[in-house]
């Protein structure tokens, strides 16, 4: 992808990542965790992993993670592009794995009192569909159903797997 990304750091086993967001509010550490979903129903896609991320803050008791929605650092496209790159690296190292991720609640939506999720991942996927679809299969889940990913549709969660 041609989008600018942040340098990220990872654990040896590829289940933890972090990178530093730099924007209008300074530097914010972003942590990414990838863990297996043992009870996920679609056998065909197993093993299924989930990707979650948040802001890391240092407290008196050490580092803690919470929701990224508060950061509003003005660099969300670069953050999402970095998370997508992390997802691609994880799948490249775990070629039989399916990775799930969820849309991202942006600060503007919450400020407007809308509890809606702006599917920023989907914007990245949709805008790079011709490139990403060459190497990956995508599915979208909504209302307890999963379907082949269709550009322009909105989903509650997304599944991706290398072809």
């Amino acid at each position: 992808m041609d989008r600018e990304t942040y340098t990220f750091y990872t654990t040896a086993d590829g289940v933890g990542y972090f990178f530093i967001s730099e924007g209008s509010r300074g530097k914010i550490l972003k942590g990414v965790s990838i863990k297996p979903l043992p009870n996920a129903a679609p056998d065909f896609l197993r093993p299924i992993y989930n990707l979650a991320f948040g802001d890391a803050r240092k407290t008196t008791n050490g580092w803690t993670l919470d929701h990224s929605v508060r950061s509003g650092n003005g660099d969300m496209p670069r953050i999402i592009a970095t998370v997508v790159q992390i997802a691609m690296e994880f799948m490249a190292q775990n070629t039989r794995a399916t990775l799930s991720f969820q849309g991202y609640a942006d600060i503007k939506s919450l400020a407007l009192g809308k509890n809606q999720r702006t599917i920023l991942y989907q914007r990245v996927i949709d805008s790079h569909w011709s490139e990403l679809a060459v190497n990956c299969n995508f599915w979208g889940a909504k209302n307890n159903e999963v379907a082949e990913y269709t550009v322009g549709n909105q989903y509650e969660r997304i599944l991706a797997r290398l072809k």
Binding site: A40, A41, A52, W63, T64, S100
Partner: peptide
């Protein structure tokens, strides 16, 4: 902190529950 994060692990648990109901 990332791997043991209650916040992130809750997100994983929510995803597991979601996909178990598909």
């Amino acid at each position: 902190a990332i791997i043991n994060s209650p916040f992130l692990n809750k997100k994983h648990q929510e995803a597991d529950e979601y996909f178990s109901k598909l």
